Computed example of a mutant assay.
Amino acid sequence: MSLLVEIDRYLRRTGTPPTTFGRRAVNDPRLVGDMRRGRLPGPGVRARVEAMLQESQ
């Protein structure tokens, strides 16, 4: 499953705005919007996002 799909599921489940998620995960409020437009996160960003998603489960 793609990281963006996992993020979108988290956002729907929690009601968290995309900008808030990006700010909390990697201090980048544009992260989710940029990913939706094709941005591919580097390994460090990806690891931090995955860690945040794991914490929420």
Score class of each variant (00 low, 15 high):
Gly38Asn: 10
Asp8Ser: 07
Arg9Glu: 08
Arg36Asn: 14
Gly22Lys: 11
Glu6Gly: 03
Val49Thr: 05
Ser56Gln: 09
Val49Glu: 02
Gln57Arg: 13
Leu4Met: 06
Ala25Gly: 12
Asp34Thr: 07
Arg36Val: 10
Gln57Ile: 05
Ser2Gly: 04
Phe21Arg: 08
Pro17Ser: 13
Arg39Val: 06
Met52Ala: 10
Arg24Thr: 06
Gln54Met: 08
Asp34Arg: 15
Leu53Met: 06
Ser2Tyr: 00
Gln54His: 10
Ser2Lys: 09
Met35Asp: 04
Thr16Asp: 04
Arg46Ile: 02
Arg36Glu: 13
Ala47Arg: 14
Met1His: 04
Val32Trp: 06
Arg36Pro: 10
Pro17Ile: 00
Ala47Trp: 00
Leu53Thr: 08
Leu31Ala: 14
Thr14Arg: 13
Val5Asn: 10
Arg46His: 04
Asn27Glu: 15
Glu55Asn: 05
Leu31His: 12
Gly42Met: 07
Val49Gly: 02
Pro17Gly: 07
Arg23Cys: 09
Gly42Pro: 09
Leu53Lys: 03
Arg13Pro: 00
Val32Ser: 12
Gly42Tyr: 03
Glu50Gly: 02
Glu55His: 04
Pro43Ala: 14
Arg39Tyr: 11
Arg46Thr: 15
Arg13Glu: 11
Gln54Thr: 11
Tyr10Arg: 08
Glu50His: 01
Met52Pro: 00
Gly38Asp: 07
Arg9Trp: 00
Val49Cys: 06
Leu11Gly: 03
Leu31Asp: 12
Gly38Trp: 01
Leu11Thr: 00
Val45Gly: 06
Pro41Cys: 09
Val45Trp: 02
Pro29Met: 01
Glu50Gln: 12
Arg30Glu: 15
Asn27Cys: 12
Gly38Phe: 01
Gly22Ile: 08
Ala25Trp: 04
Thr14His: 11
Gly33Phe: 09
Asp8Leu: 09
